[in-house]
Design a protein around this nucleic acid. Sequence first.
DNA 1: GGGGAGAGATGCCGC
DNA 2: GCGGCATTTCTCCCC
Lengths: 240, 240
Amino acid sequence: METHISLLQDALKHNETVVFTANCRVEYSGRAKTHLPLGDRIIIIKPDNTLLIHQPQGATPVNWMKESHITVEKVDDLYVLQCRGQKEFLDIYLHRIHFMNTANLSDGQKLQLTGHERDMADLIAADPGVIEEGLRFAGQEEQTTYGFIDVLCYDKAGNLVVVECKRYKGGLDAVTQLRRYVERIRELKGITKVRGILACPSITGNAKKMLENWGFEHAAIEPPKYLERFRKDQRRLGEF
Amino acid sequence: METHISLLQDALKHNETVVFTANCRVEYSGRAKTHLPLGDRIIIIKPDNTLLIHQPQGATPVNWMKESHITVEKVDDLYVLQCRGQKEFLDIYLHRIHFMNTANLSDGQKLQLTGHERDMADLIAADPGVIEEGLRFAGQEEQTTYGFIDVLCYDKAGNLVVVECKRYKGGLDAVTQLRRYVERIRELKGITKVRGILACPSITGNAKKMLENWGFEHAAIEPPKYLERFRKDQRRLGEF
DNA sequence: GGGGAGAGATGCCGC
DNA sequence: GCGGCATTTCTCCCC
């Protein structure tokens, strides 16, 4: 135990990355208050003073701290990893450390991501015809005090059309968001006849009801797919 | 390298928790598509087939997979950790493994959390007077087709009052949510005069404007604080 | 830095 | 499983 603790203190001093597993109890107090009884966990301390505690199951950390001041203190024969933030506090009561690794990890790379909602809005802006025949592009990311409108169009009859995009199934919040934008545009431009279209692959029953109540429409639009790389070697995937 | 790989394969077979750091490249394809060039990362594989990839900075994983089928394959002289989900794929190209630990971690504990929004709603339900003098409790977690109402009350004049709680600063979405509930209650009960109150510590300027536009009100309610434990030894905290 | 909204959101609870 | 919604949400973008 003492070996692990001095290794930990040394790593903290030199701002290294620390990874270890321990049997511990965790107490957090700050934005909420949590208590986690004794158990085995994986703990990561990063050079930017991020601390993560993971249980052996689940995708999200059970406790965490960002930009905290981290120290080790001995309290009543027990080593305690103390994390102090501006308005947050986290204590890890270390009953046993199973293993520990400290290292200087080097990674200046940034994740490159494609396939967000913006891509879908761009597709629609480039060709509003996918939503409705005769639709013409009028503007994108229109700024209102009450939010940002994805795409603005004119329909064949010359009416303004607010299009709200969702890459996933549309729910009540998507409909209320659309409604807010339509009302805002009506107010700003002084026009009563402004149409609202929710563009998303599918929609929940209640959302559909609410759309219809408000005289809005749903356009079934599929978001771009991102499995191209795997289509061409499906035979290999089929092995699974 | 070969030692690490066989250790990894053994751990995967026996469903153990694996923690290691590696110099690697990561490709993900599924709900979106990501590319992460070569760098040092921390990788965790849990018995429930959760896989997490962390860079040496930041609180959230740079890539992850849940409930995936994980295998190691050698492709062009390079070991590749392949994760396959229903509609998702993740590949980790392992250029070097710095260290690796496998273990059987035991943790059946659940996080006990207090201080969520529900606690705030309970406080208000127990004593609606904190919002407005003369307010009487009428119901909690009222079910409407369009969502759950936090607290329902009657005011001194006998009007129904819908209370929506937020533990943080209220924004446009909080106001639209309140509006939905008020309208729903008006519809259900056939009453025109239903008041709406947004109970939260503070509110954004636009949200305030929107509230007033629709005749709703804001009650400045502080969510319960969770720093009691630290007040009593402030001297020690003052050392930081 | 505040405000608004998306996220490969995740997780929880209720039906 | 779907649906609605909170989250110690986090993160990005824009003003």
